[in-house]
Structures are given as C-alpha cells and as structure tokens.
C-alpha cells in the first residue's frame, strides 16, 4: 500500500460520504444519476468477486464491503425510499447506460489478460468504471443549477482515479511492477472524461461562483 493509493481510496470513500450526506440530510437526490449509481453497483459486484475467496488485508476486505454496501444502499434510496425517490430527476437521467454495459462486456471478452471468469469480469469492471460517470455528467449538463454537494461528489469521484494512476506509476517505479495496459488505459480514459468537469469545477471554486457546465 502506498500513499497515493491510500489517498485515492480515502477520496473515493469521501465522495460516497458526501453523496450519502446529500441524500440523507437534504432527503433529495436531485441532480444525481441513478444510472451511474447502478453502474457502480455492477462495477463493485464484478470487481469484488474474490471478496470471500482471496484475503489481502482487513483494510481491503473492509473497504470492499463498504463500497458494496454504500453503492447498493444509494441505489435502494433512489429507487425505493418514499421521499427520496420523488426527487429523482427521472426525465433528465436519460443516458442509455445499457450500451455502456454491453460495450464493456464485449471489450472485456476481446481484450483481457487471461481468459478466466475472475479476470474477464475484473477487466469488465475496469472498462465499465471508466465510462460509468457518463450518465452523471450528461445529467449535470442538463441541470440548470448544480448544488454544491453534487459538484463535490463528482469532483472527488474523478480525483480518486487520478490518484490511482499515480499509485500505478509508483508501483511501476518502486515495486518493479510490470506495466499493465488495461488498468492504465481505463484509468486514463476515466480521468480524461472528467477533464471538462474539473475545469469548470475549479473555475467556479476560484471565482466563488455557482458551478455551471455549458450545455
């Protein structure tokens, strides 16, 4: 475990805390894409298949349970909680996210490091995570005003993968880890998709003005 990965995991955890804070305190999920949340549940389910078969550390197992539990909890809140589900921007969350799942499955079947169930599903989860934010970004562009917590959530979610890329550079240099195309490219694509958002988020933060994405 290196500092970049720890910072990355903490940033990821913080993004989920911010989202839960927003949903629980404001009792609203306005501006949050249910589709992105559902994609994240699939990402965690297919990535953490080895949860009960492989033990790396207490930290690793605990964090997997937290990520699985919170992502499923958030989808439950947005789908079934009597108050929260009314605030879901249903007719704006229109991204065809099933295509993202299909594309990721096809790509994982074509490009993977080993053709076994765990590896292919793990690869699938990397490809899917890279594009999982798209429905959320599209929804943000449609939202007239983006509330602070939603902006902070997306920023932290994007920042965590950028930190993971630094972690891979560190592991490559210091732990003479081999270069791994699949996580690297997926992570770079994922972070690149946030570039536009990062620009407007930082600009709004510097100018002390409301976050607004160009339509």
């Amino acid at each position: 475990m290196n500092l970049f990965r720890l910072l990355g995991d903490m940033t990821h955890l913080l993004s989920i805390v911010v989202l839960l804070l927003k949903i629980r305190t404001v009792k609203s999920c306005a501006g949050i894409s249910l589709k992105t949340q559902e994609l994240y549940v699939i990402v965690f389910l297919t990535r953490y298949l080895d949860l009960f078969t492989k033990y790396y550390s207490v930290y690793n197992t605990a964090m997997k349970l937290v990520f699985l539990g919170t992502s499923i909890g958030i989808v439950w809140y947005m789908r079934y909680h009597k108050v929260v589900k009314q605030t879901y921007s249903k007719d704006e969350d229109t991204f065809k996210h099933y295509f993202l799942i299909l594309l990721s499955i096809i790509l994982a079947l074509l490009i993977h490091r080993a053709f076994d169930v765990i590896e292919v599903l793990w690869t699938f989860s990397l490809y899917l995570e890279a594009v999982a934010i798209l429905p959320q970004l599209v929804l943000l562009q449609k939202s007239r005003n983006i509330d602070t917590l939603t902006g902070d959530y997306v920023f932290l979610l994007g920042a965590y993968r950028a930190l993971y890329i630094l972690n891979w550079v560190y592991r490559f240099l210091m732990e003479n880890h081999k270069f791994r195309w699949i996580p690297w490219i997926s992570g770079l694509v994922q972070t690149a998709l946030y570039a536009d958002f990062f620009y407007y988020y930082i600009k709004s933060w510097k100018n002390r003005e409301k976050l607004k994405l160009p339509a």
Binding site: R5, D50, K54, N60, M63, W122, N167, H177, R180
Partner: peptide, 10 residues
C-alpha cells in the same frame, strides 16, 4: 496474486 495483477487494489 501474480506480480502483474492489481487484484490487491480496490
């Protein structure tokens, strides 16, 4: 895990 894999990550 094999050296090359990142399965020990989240």
């Amino acid at each position: 895990p094999p050296k090359g894999s990142f399965h020990d990550e989240l």
